[in-house]
Design a protein around this nucleic acid. Structure first.
Length: 810
RNA sequence: GCGAGAGUGGUGGAAUGGUAGACACGCUAGAUUUAGGAUCUAGUGCCUCACGGCGUGCGGGUUCAAAUCCCGCCUCUCGCACCA
């Protein structure tokens, strides 16, 4: 066969289509339910149906598939489902901008993406697909909401939300864009506005969420979650404000209490109006107003000079009875602690800056080591010895924390407490394309949950969208007018829908039984498959999605739905695949790489393998499509091992065949276990080159079988084609993963490295079991080595068995 | 500012105390009696005709031996950022 002809015969697209059809016909990827095998639930994050799969989807999914296949070949029954995270803003924007109903837009995108997913050649079990905007799915979102509500985990309160004054609507977090926080649609800077909102009490689980002992997750994700939860131990201290009453502060440094020379409240603090004296009220009101108008970005700009105003009020320091002035200042945030602080300028950088500016006393109460009694040039936040603190003088500050807290507790002026940065999860969205919150407002009965049997509360079908983006549910009497389930009187429905993170907080449970109608999932199926053994997805979900997922599972445990504490035993993150410009891939930047053109030209195996080959999977990196040609060449060469056509004149030792085959199996086994896809592919390439060079030997056919078997998780179509061409029984994907013998991997011959003073001087071929003595003799007698020893004394020699001799001379 | 990670050929990367640059891309030369965005062969870190020397961000250290371990610095990326 001529080379030209061979090139024409290599048509990866045709080959892949053939096998995809065969796989579908034969049900090859139907989930194996054989309970004699250990289970493996492999989960990859479900995509948002934006319209087309891009390489940002291929990058996490195909290596996850490779690993799922590997587990299957290792004797596990593997469940590897896929679905669509189908609620969300883009669908609504399509409706507003182009008049396409969100449902139509979403389902047509899903239809297209289903085909693209199949093209990937992954072993997804498409029978268990879940689409989160199906009433069949979101009904259970509503059910969960009701369960949360019953347990007091869902509650309604006034909460500040991002509000676009032009569109006259609130915005979801992800709709607020840019460093200066503007509305995604119209570019208007957003403001904060108080609205009644539904929240989930995730803070009840803050402490438990800090415990990662039951899961094997990347250190980085744990750290991010830990920081996000932001646990701080300290004390709540009660300061009496003259003529008003007690106001509490939170501090992590009760030991500095004697140094509190002023008191600061956030401009949003509810007590401000009551404590402000008439003389100061004008100034205070102006400051509060200015703070309210200020954009979030200005407000939280760390480099801005501290500002504040005196309220005219004084607070009494419970430690020493001193009167200290009460200020309001925007560097104190209402959203953390109690919204008020005791200011200790000597030992807090921010308080120091403020005190300097307003001429407030800076009293050192923690002596730094080697302190000479002079005033501090800057705040000292470290530990030291307590001074100027009455009976506490001389106490180390580390002990002082407890001592002061205990003292306060005795007098009812404070207590030890723990504060979290984590806030309750605000789930209300003033949006259409989401799960309706199953709540009814009745003038007589108040807030009434929709009875379980009335679920789901369906989204209306024919809806008109306002160009302003305001949720049509608010303007749809057919939707919101209803009867009170309790008293039967006229009532209105909640028109807010749920945050889409709700959908992704439990979807892997639904995969188990997507049409089950007696609960969110069939407990028998859960028994068989839960929890998820291996989750894969992007690091960008380290906090929100993955924290909510853990929270949900803990609540589900408390509801008796599951009997474990963590949703996913093991998590691994891929890095981000960036655009060719090194920037994050996004439609607006125009740097999105469409996998289709690569699939059409090189086939999906080539794209899969290329994505695994470009570098460590957890690092990601910019896309450079050129290299895919090398991978494509390799696959063609691999295929030619069976079909012929590619010749190789390279020289290789055929007797190495068993050793190299064993070594390959070990390498691929180890690499796949550790998510090192890039080095696994490199080893497969190397082995292909070797097999080509020694083609046709006695043991060759058996070695080829092994090679094709270990190739199959990476390039499933090509491996299947080769398997069939070798006359083996369908399918290679049902073969057992080959084992290897450690003993066979050892080479009989080694290259002995000879160094002189650590520098490489010669390489000598020697038997692997060479003795130290012989090795040294060989080294000393080497012609390349001798010149470097001349006139010098051999002081020492190091022998590393099977590797090297280092001669130390001087 | 705080926290985490990373710096290796022209490029992606490999090597986690013992042969630096595996495997690829690209490039150079040759073969395929036409062509080449095909294929095959050989070469390809830098300097040097060669012997050899130099070389993993920079500076120091530990060691017989350092990309790898330790100390200091620089640069980049990603989080968080007035959290009391």
């Amino acid at each position: 066969m001529s080379e030209t002809k061979q090139r024409r015969t290599y048509d990866p697209t045709d080959l892949e289509h053939r096998w995809q059809e065969r796989w579908a016909e034969s049900g090859l990827y139907k989930t194996d339910e054989d309970e004699n095998k250990p289970k493996h639930y492999a989960l990859t994050m479900l995509p948002y149906p934006s319209g087309d799969l891009h390489v940002g989807h291929w990058y996490p999914m195909t290596p996850s598939d490779t690993r799922a296949r590997f587990m299957r070949m290792n004797g596990f029954r593997v469940f590897f489902p896929i679905g669509f995270d189908a609620f969300g803003l883009p669908a609504e924007n399509a409706a507003i901008g182009r008049g396409i109903p969100p449902r139509d837009w979403t389902y047509s995108n899903i239809e297209r993406m289903r085909g693209q997913l199949r093209q990937m050649g992954a072993m997804f079990d498409f029978d268990s697909e879940v689409v989160t905007c199906d009433p069949e799915y979101y009904r259970w979102n509503q059910w969960f909401f009701l369960k949360f509500f019953e347990r007091g985990l869902a509650y309604r309160m006034e909460a500040p939300v991002d509000w676009c004054p032009k569109d006259n609507t609130t915005l979801a977090r992800e709709q607020v864009v840019g460093p200066d926080k503007r509305c995604e649609r119209c570019g208007t800077p957003v403001i904060k506005k108080n609205l009644p909102q539904w929240l989930f009490k995730i803070t009840d689980y803050a402490e438990e969420l800090l415990d990662f002992s039951k899961i094997d997750w990347p250190e980085r994700v744990e750290t991010l979650q830990r920081n996000w939860i932001g646990r701080s131990e300290g004390a709540e201290i009660r300061f009496e404000i003259e003529g008003y009453g007690p106001v509490e502060v939170f501090t992590t440094r009760p030991d500095t209490l004697f140094g509190a020379t002023f008191f600061v409240m956030s401009p949003e603090h509810p007590a401000i109006e009551a404590i402000t004296t008439p003389e100061q009220s004008e100034e205070v009101r102006a400051y509060v107003e200015r703070a309210a108008k200020m954009s979030e970005i200005d407000r939280t700009d760390v480099t801005r000079e501290k500002t504040g105003v005196f309220t005219g009020a004084y607070a009494i320091n419970p430690a020493n009875g001193e009167e200290i002035p009460v200020y309001i200042a925007d560097y104190v945030l209402m959203g953390y602690g109690t919204g008020a602080i005791m200011a200790v300028p000597a030992h807090d950088e921010r308080d120091f800056e403020f005190a300097k500016k307003y001429g407030i006393e800076i009293r050192t109460v923690i002596a730094p080591p080697d302190w000479n009694g002079e005033d501090l040039d800057e705040a000292y936040a470290g530990e030291g010895t307590m001074v100027n603190s009455n009976e506490c003088d001389g106490t180390p500050s580390t002990e002082g924390k407890e001592k002061v807290t205990a003292w306060l507790e005795e007098r009812g002026a404070g207590k030890a407490t723990v504060t979290y940065r984590l806030h309750d999860w605000l789930i209300s969205r003033q949006r259409f394309w989401g799960t309706p919150i199953p709540i009814i407002f009745c003038d007589e009965c108040g807030i009434v949950p929709v009875p379980e049997e009335d679920l789901p509360v369906l989204l209306p079908e024919d809806t008109e969208f306002m160009p302003t983006g305001e949720s049509p549910l608010k303007l749809d009497p057919g939707f919101y007018n209803t009867e009170c389930p309790r008293c039967g009187g006229p009532a209105t429905r909640e028109t807010d829908t749920m945050d889409t993170f709700m959908d992704s907080s439990w979807y892997w449970y639904r995969y188990l039984s997507p049409h089950y109608d007696r609960g969110p999932f069939d407990p028998e199926r859960g028994e068989k498959w839960l929890p998820v053994d291996q989750y894969t997805g992007g690091i960008e979900h380290a906090i929100l999605h993955l924290l909510y997922a853990r929270f949900f599972t803990k609540v589900m445990r408390d509801l008796g739905l599951v009997d474990f504490d963590e949703p996913m035993t093991r998590l691994r993150n891929q890095g981000n695949i960036l655009g060719p410009d090194g920037q994050k891939m996004s439609k607006s930047r125009g740097n999105v790489v469409n996998p289709q053109e690569y699939v059409d030209r090189f086939g999906s195996d080539a794209l899969r393998c290329f994505l695994m080959f470009i570098g460590p999977w957890n690092e990601g990196g910019p896309w450079d499509g050129k290299g895919i040609e090398g991978v494509s060449r390799w696959l063609r060469r691999a295929l030619s091992l069976v079909t012929g056509g590619v010749s190789s004149g390279g020289e290789a030792d055929p007797s190495e065949l068993p050793r190299r085959t064993n070594r390959l199996v070990k390498k691929i086994t180890d690499d796949l276990g550790a998510f090192r896809f890039n080095t696994a592919i490199a080893a497969l390439m190397e082995h292909t080159n070797y097999l080509l060079a020694v083609r046709g030997r006695e043991e060759w056919h058996e070695a080829l079988r092994t090679f094709v078997t270990v190739l199959s998780p990476f390039a499933p179509h090509h491996a299947e084609e080769m398997w069939a061409a070798m006359g083996e029984d369908y399918s290679v994907h049902e073969q057992a993963w080959p084992g290897y013998e450690e003993a066979l991997i050892q080479a009989s011959e080694i290259t002995l490295i000879v160094q002189v003073n650590g520098k490489l001087r010669d390489r000598i071929e020697a038997p692997a079991d060479i003795s130290e003595e012989t090795a040294k003799e060989l080294a000393l007698s080497s012609a390349r080595v001798r010149p470097h020893l001349e006139g010098k004394e051999l002081r020492k020699s190091i022998y590393v068995p099977g590797r090297l001799v280092n001669l130390v001379v001087g």
